[in-house]
């Protein structure tokens, strides 16, 4: 059974369909990439998985359980963490509070300290700034905070919406490097990107245009495809 299976998912805002009958499946340990231009429907797919927008049609199965109709906090409790687009951290909460607010497991001093320590080990920068207000962090640090917040529950699946957006190439590389570490620690990753360089990290993915799947396959297949070469790599 796949960790996450999307069957004929459609998402619409009023009469406007953002996603039309998209299907894909993630196995445990995968880094699955949803690649596409602006408005291709990538963000809508993530938002419907995490319950922020309702699915108009299709099914969203996590380990066989249909997630449709669950509230976002219930999806998070089911082990699926979402790092929303645009580094949505809490600017007036301290770094430590930003992290602990999302901690949902059995809440004792010890379990929370362990989760915090794990995140701080991955992002030492956050430990240094743990008392600082989230809004005072730099762009890269805020992205790390958003990822760290999503990791506090040791999710089975981590979904990230354009984590490299607005970051310098060096910082973007650092973020992808950390994602590789997170994956090696056993978390499956669903990554939304406009930037095809993230394929380096991927095991597979799909390419979306106007809400439909135009290409699906393993990393090599995507990288070698004429479509990606022309549209994303410029070669």
């Amino acid at each position: 059974m796949s960790l996450l299976e999307i069957e004929n998912l459609s998402v619409a805002y009023g009469d406007l369909f953002a996603v039309r009958e998209v299907s894909f499946a993630l196995d445990e340990g995968a880094v699955f990439v949803l690649l596409g231009a602006n408005g291709a429907g990538k963000t809508s797919i993530l938002r419907s998985i995490s319950g922020l927008v309702p699915a108009r049609g299709g099914r969203i199965l996590a380990a066989g359980r249909d997630l449709r109709g669950l509230a976002p906090n219930q999806v998070a409790r089911a082990g699926i963490s979402h790092v929303p687009e645009g580094r949505q951290i809490f600017p007036n909460l301290s770094v430590a509070e930003n992290l602990t607010v999302s901690f949902l497991k059995e809440r004792t001093k010890e379990t929370m300290a362990a989760a915090l320590a794990a995140v701080y080990e991955l992002f030492p920068r956050l430990a240094e700034r743990r008392r600082q207000a989230g809004g005072t962090l730099s762009g890269g640090e805020q992205q790390m905070l958003a990822i760290g917040r999503a990791l506090m529950n040791f999710p089975k699946l981590l979904m990230l919406d354009e984590p490299s957006l607005g970051l310098s190439p060096v910082l973007a590389d650092l973020v992808f490097e950390r994602l590789a570490t997170i994956r090696s620690l056993g978390t499956t990753i669903l990554l939304v990107e406009q930037n095809a360089t993230c394929l380096e990290l991927a095991t597979g993915g799909i390419i979306l245009a106007n809400g439909r799947v135009v290409l699906a396959g393993t990393r090599d297949r995507l990288q070698d495809s004429e479509f990606v070469r022309r549209a994303y790599l410029g070669v």
Binding site: G51, L52, P72, N73, A76, S81, Q88, F90, V101, S102
Partner: peptide, 16 residues
Amino acid sequence: RAVRDDEVAAAAAGVG
């Protein structure tokens, strides 16, 4: 306070 700062992010962080 998280909801006051950002409702969408709070929901994504698992806050009801």
